[in-house]
Design a binder for these strands. Structure first.
Lengths: 223, 223
DNA sequence: CAAATTATGGCACTCGATGACACTTGTCAA
DNA sequence: TTGACAAGTGTCATCGAGTGCCATAATTTG
C-alpha cells in the first residue's frame, strides 16, 4: 500500500535499514496519536505524556523526534511551504514573477487536492484548522510563513536576475503573494464543507479583486 | 517630568489614587527592568525570576501584571496597533479605504517620530528589534497583527458601508496594507542607523512599487 | 560472536505558568 | 477614628514543557 501522506517522514536518505524503518514507524505513530488527541481534546489540553503513553514510548523520546510540541504540528505545514518553493523553482523562466508564483501556488494545491489515493488533502485541512483555532500554533505557523518570505523573495530575484539587496520588488512580491495565500486559506476554513479546491478559488478571487480593493471607494460591486 | 512613553500603563481610568500610582510604578518598573535585561542578555536567557529580583517583587506578582513573559513585550507593540486603529477610525469618511489606511499609518508613525519629549520612538524601535531577533517573540507579534486584520477589515467595511461577510474587499485591503506595514518595519531594521522616519519612507516606496512588482518581468528598473 | 553505533529509557533539574491561602495596605462609610 | 472591605502581594505547592546526563538495550558492522 502506497500510504503516501504528509504524515510520513520525507525520503531524506536512502537508509533502508531496519533501524530507519523503526524510527519512521515511531515518528509516524507519534504524529498520528498526537493529531488524534488534539482533535479529541484540543492541543493545549493534550500533554506530551498522553501522546507518548498512547504510543508507549518515553516522553524523552518524543523530544528526540520533535523539537517541541508545537513543532510537531507546524513542521507539517512547513512541508507544504517546501512544496511551494520546489514548484516555484521548477517554473519556466519565461514566466514573470507574478505568473510563476501564482502558477506554483495553484499547482501545489491542485496536486494535493488530486491525490485521491492518499489522505494528504484531508490531513492538510485538519492541520490547518487546528492551527487556525489554536493561538500558539497560529503564532508558530505565521513565523514560518514569515521566514519563507525571504526564501521566496530570493528565488524570485534569482529568476529575474536582479539583486535582492538593492531591488525591493522581489521581497515586495513575495510578501503580497504569501499574504494572499494566507488569506485564501483562512477564508476557506470558515466554510466547514470547503475542500482544498476552495482555497484555490479564494486565491483567484482575491487576485481578481486586488485592484478594486485598493483603489477608490467601494460603492460599486467588486470587479 | 512628562515621561510620556509607551512604557506607561495606558490612561484607562481616571483613578488617581495612591493605589493606582503604586500599581503603575510596579508595572513600569517590571517593564523597564525586563527590557534592560533582555537587551543585556537576550529574551530567552532572561528568567522571570531575574526580572522580579531586579524590582524586588515575587514572581507571582509578575504574572499578575503580564499574562506571560512574551506578553510583556508583545503588548507594547500591540499598543501601537491600537493607535493605528484609533487613527483609522478618525479619518474623514470622504477618504477611500486605501487613502485612509495609508494616511492613518503614516500619521501614527510620524506622531511617534515627532515625540521628542519622550522616548516613545526609541522604545518602539528597541522593542521591534528585540522582537525581530527573537523567534518566539516574532511569532506572538505576527499573531497579533493577524488578529488585527479582522478588526481593520471590519472598520473599513463600516466606513464604506459594505457587508464584510459578502464583500471580500475589506479583508483583502486590510491584509495587503498590514503586510506592507510589516515589510516596511522589517526593512527599516536592517539599517541599524534607521529611525522611525525610514519606516514611513519604506512604506511609501513599497506602495509606489506595488504595480511594478506584480506585473511583468523586472528587467526594467523599479518604477 | 564481539565491538562499535545508535536509539531509547529513566532521572533529575530548570523554567514558565497557575491555583490556593494568608497577610498587608489603601479606601470608604459610619 | 474605627471598622469593614477590597485589592495587591507573598509564600507554597503543583503542573507541564523541555534539557542534560548516563545507563541500557537494540542494531549494525567487522
Amino acid at each position: 500500500m502506497p500510504e503516501s501522506s504528509i504524515l510520513e517522514t520525507p525520503p531524506v536518505a536512502g537508509g533502508s535499514d531496519r533501524r530507519e524503518r523503526k524510527k519512521r514507524q515511531t515518528r509516524d505513530a507519534l504524529l498520528r496519536a498526537a493529531l488524534e488527541l488534539f482533535d479529541a481534546k484540543g492541543y493545549e489540553q493534550t500533554t506530551v505524556r498522553e501522546i507518548t503513553d498512547a504510543v508507549d514510548v518515553s516522553t524523552r523520546t518524543f523530544f528526540r523526534y520533535f523539537a517541541s510540541k508545537e513543532d510537531l504540528v507546524v513542521s507539517l505545514s512547513a512541508d507544504f511551504s517546501a512544496s511551494l518553493l520546489d514548484e516555484l523553482r521548477g517554473r519556466p523562466a519565461t514566466e514573470d514573477p507574478f505568473t510563476a508564483l501564482h502558477g506554483a501556488f495553484t499547482a501545489v494545491f491542485r496536486e494535493y487536492a488530486a491525490q485521491s489515493g492518499s489522505d494528504s488533502a484531508a490531513v492538510y485541512l485538519r492541520i490547518v484548522r487546528l492551527i487556525e483555532s489554536t493561538p500558539p500554533l497560529l503564532a508558530g505557523y505565521l513565523r514560518n510563513i514569515h521566514e519563507q518570505q525571504d526564501v521566496v523573495a530570493a528565488t524570485l530575484a534569482e529568476r529575474e536576475g536582479v539583486d535582492p539587496r538593492t531591488d525591493r520588488r522581489p521581497q515586495l512580491a513575495a510578501t503580497i503573494l504569501l499574504a494572499l495565500v494566507g488569506l485564501s486559506v483562512k477564508r476557506s476554513l470558515t466554510d466547514p464543507q470547503a475542500g482544498i479546491d476552495s482555497i484555490v478559488e479564494e486565491f483567484e478571487l482575491a487576485l481578481s479583486q486586488l485592484d478594486s480593493a485598493l483603489s477608490g471607494h467601494w460603492t460599486a460591486a467588486p470587479a
